[in-house]
């Protein structure tokens, strides 16, 4: 007797966010990247469409990295000392879909570059590196409020993804992103209610929900991974059930979390495995963009998504 399958049909879907604009669209990117658009739970290919596979964004800094593990420094070699060469290697050798540019050099403790310098840097970067761009601040709220608007303006029309907006500091960034035609990263501290609330606040300012990507805040494997994993599953269930305020794609900052932990620092291969499994596990709970550091870990994750999406 044939087993009658239990099939789930969902009324909702995840919104599609496009990153990057080509010349015809007013930008200068060589390609655009789309994420989201799912109409079923992660990897349930038989129950809906998954038009866009998860994408890997390589994390690049605007300065030579200060606290990277030796394993990471070795993986990139001398290229890592110059952001432009570093990014070019990621594009040419490691086939990066996206670059995530972290403006670490604007942080008061890491060089304190001015917003004008940051804007100049972004312009030059866009000139030299042609893949779609994610731009993030240095994590210093006060400084980011000055730096990110300048970067946003310098990248006007390039349809970047810029972050991060947080619950008590989102207005400045939303206004810039809105004016310059970008999308925004909305960061919430492993809390589905705050994620929802922040999305509502941002869309109330006129930036549509279709231009928001959620950063649920993740922990690395062994360091709270399961909290983000479950928050993402819950948010997806709500979104597919019809809650539009949670129906945004997810971005997960995998590299920075994975390489902070003891197990990753202890052994090169273990570090790569740590970053790899952190990423693949979050893909299972719905990650759309994985911001990664180690090229071998990125290669692993690419193998994983290629296998999953083969024939889809």
């Amino acid at each position: 007797m044939e087993t009658q399958l239990v099939l789930e049909k969902w009324p909702g879907s995840i919104s599609v966010v496009t990153i990057g604009a080509k010349t015809a669209e007013g930008g200068s990117r060589s390609q655009t990247v789309q994420i989201g658009g799912q109409t079923a739970l992660p990897l349930m290919f038989k129950e809906g469409v998954m038009p866009n596979r998860p994408k890997i964004a390589f994390e690049i800094w605007d300065i030579a990295p200060v606290d990277f593990e030796q394993e990471l420094m070795t993986a990139y070699g001398r290229a890592i000392n110059d952001p432009f060469t570093w990014a070019q290697v990621c594009v040419d050798e490691f086939k990066a879909d996206l670059i995530c540019l972290k403006m670490q050099g604007t942080h008061p403790d890491f060089g304190d570059r001015s917003p004008q310098e940051a804007a100049k840097f972004v312009s030059k970067f866009l000139n030299q590196i042609k893949v779609p761009l994610i731009i993030t601040g240095s994590g210093d709220n006060a400084k980011d409020n000055l730096v990110l608007p300048a970067c946003s303006e310098a990248a006007k029309g390039e349809r970047c993804l810029i972050g991060s907006a947080v619950q008590d500091n989102y207005k400045t960034l939303v206004a810039s992103v809105l004016a310059d035609g970008h999308s925004i990263i909305a960061e919430s501290p492993i809390d589905i209610n705050i994620a929802k609330q922040l999305n509502i606040l941002i869309s109330d300012m006129g930036l549509s929900l279709e231009r928001i990507v959620i950063d649920p805040t993740i922990g690395a494997l062994g360091y709270g991974l399961e909290y983000a994993y479950s928050i993402m599953e819950r948010a997806r269930l709500a979104a597919l059930s019809g809650d539009k305020t949670l129906a945004c794609p997810f971005i997960c900052f995998v590299g920075q979390e994975a390489w902070r932990v003891k197990e990753a620092k202890a052994d090169g291969r273990q570090g790569i495995a740590w970053e790899t499994l952190t990423a693949t596990s979050l893909i299972q709970s719905g990650a759309d963009i994985l911001v990664m550091r180690h090229p071998k870990a990125a290669e692993n994750v690419l193998w994983y998504t290629d296998g999953l999406f083969r024939g889809q």
């Binding site: 494997l221 062994g222 399961e226 052994d267 499994l277 596990s281």
Partner: peptide, 20 residues
Amino acid sequence: LEAWEALSILTLRQNIYTDP
């Protein structure tokens, strides 16, 4: 049988099977 591989797999299991 590599220890690093086993540790990463077992750590994931520990995470997923932790009582939320």
